[in-house]
Design a protein around this nucleic acid. Structure first.
Lengths: 148, 148
DNA sequence: TATTGTTATACTCTATAACTATA
DNA sequence: TATAGTTATAGAGTATAACAATA
């Protein structure tokens, strides 16, 4: 079954596309693009992160972080604050509006996901989640081996 | 377990990201961006498509198709040919170089997928493929109900 | 010297709107 | 009138490279 893996890749791409095309419009109503949602989510999990660390966590260039943070800051969702121990760096914090955005994101993710996965049985959903987690674990390992 | 669906959405996003970040660089070496790969693949499955039909199949605007086709045509991978029955329209065909690109795409997808999913057992991989297919079936149904 | 974050610049992908040529 | 595809224009997201300030 040598084409199994190829098929998996295609399925993963197709599933992602189906999922995001449903969600993009809903998030867009609140000015929440995928890149902004990802940065806010990571920042919420790791408060007071430096921009450099966010770039690493998100797997993008430092330049990309500047753009997204500029946009989020001008929308009042995050704030740059000087790093006490390193005057080159900024610490990012979520404003109250940013925390509200986090709530809205969680709510939207919940509702959209419920809608979108409602056609699958509970068992299939939990199996799918388990297998995706297993996949992510293996890629994280191979990433570590391949620091490039 | 009301957060199961939310978790699934996040996992799907993360898995897609892990997958594409591995593949993007490899495809990029051949000038094959995601949008170009998708168009070539759809065109290969539906030869002599009109641009309008490609836009619908890919779920993007007509404008986006013009850009991608311009790029592919200037790289010599596709050709615009007049539609015999409708002088407003073009039929797209893959050139020999385009067919070679299709072969390269298949080969790369195969190799990358093998690498990336090699950490999972054969059983987990086939289960994951089955569940992704099940998910895609349900979204295709709900798309049909929601022609928007 | 190395690192943090910025500015400068450019590319891909996408969108809407106005337009031309046809249907 | 409606449709196929284009040009004009714009915006998000990303990248590399050169730079400033700091480590």
């Amino acid at each position: 079954m040598s084409s199994g893996a190829t098929e998996l890749g295609r399925l993963l791409m197709a599933a992602h596309r189906a999922f995001t095309q449903q969600g993009r419009a809903r998030f867009g109503e609140y000015g929440l693009s995928p890149a902004r949602v990802r940065l806010l989510t990571v920042l919420h999990r790791s408060p007071d992160s430096r921009m450099r660390d966010l770039a690493d966590a998100l797997g993008v260039s430092g330049r990309a972080i500047t753009s997204v943070v500029d946009a989020l800051e001008s929308d009042g969702l995050v704030e740059r604050k000087p790093d006490a121990g390193d005057r080159r760096a900024f610490r990012l914090t979520l404003t109250d509006a940013g925390l509200s955005a986090i709530d809205r994101i969680a709510d939207l993710q919940h509702r959209i996901s419920e809608e979108i996965f409602s056609g699958m049985s509970a068992e299939d959903r939990s199996d799918l989640a388990r297998l995706l987690r297993a996949y992510l674990d293996t890629t994280r390992d191979s990433d570590a081996e391949r620091p490039a």
